[in-house]
């Protein structure tokens, strides 16, 4: 405190208190969850789910086990069921309590079968309820809203097919002149 005149100190103190007072009159940023729903962005990585094919209504998963192979914490376990027409997943377990929500499984899926939802609402008191089997995964897929990202869209974002527009890519905007901020 030495070396500063009283007027300087008083002015600095009043400035700090004025800043707090200014924030007193700003609107609070609290979101009243869960009565108010927050608007999740398009690519939000929420719960995982298995989906059905849109045209046939059949299960989309072919049991290829690529997601099991790529998952870093190894939470997915799949068994394949071979039938003459196409393959299915005989059993599909996903341990949601250990899942990292990294979206790698979504990125590799060739048939867009596993997707993520725009919600993470799965409150539970028992961790065993978060061990999702195939039926629960399908139920989650029907309950919530899906994110934008599916396997094909993510892969096309990185390597667009010839001539087609790239999904998830913003049209180039005219660059604004910026002043160099020191």
């Amino acid at each position: 405190m030495k070396g500063t005149e009283p007027t300087v100190i008083v002015r600095a103190v009043l400035k700090a208190m004025g800043m707090t007072l200014r924030n007193l009159f700003r609107k609070p940023v609290t979101v009243h969850y869960p009565t108010t729903e927050r608007k999740y962005p398009e690519r939000y990585r929420g719960l995982l789910a298995l989906v059905y094919e849109p045209d046939t209504g059949d299960e989309a998963c072919i049991g290829c086990r690529l997601c099991e192979f790529v998952c870093p914490p190894a939470v997915i376990k799949v068994e394949m069921l071979k039938t003459p027409e196409r393959n299915y997943a005989k059993s599909f377990t996903l341990e949601l309590y250990a899942c990292e929500f990294c979206e790698l499984c979504v990125q590799v899926c060739p048939t867009d079968a596993i997707v993520m939802m725009k919600s993470f609402d799965m409150p539970t008191a028992d961790r065993r309820e978060m061990l999702l089997d195939k039926d629960r995964l399908h139920t989650i897929g029907l309950q919530h809203e899906r994110t934008w990202a599916t396997g094909n869209k993510l892969r096309d974002m990185q390597a667009p097919p010839k001539g087609a527009p790239r999904p998830g890519h913003a049209a180039p905007a005219a660059p604004k002149p910026t002043e160099a901020k020191a």
Partner: peptide, 12 residues
Amino acid sequence: FAARMQSRIGPY
């Protein structure tokens, strides 16, 4: 009062 100064709501 403190909550309003910190852009939040206090006990609600």
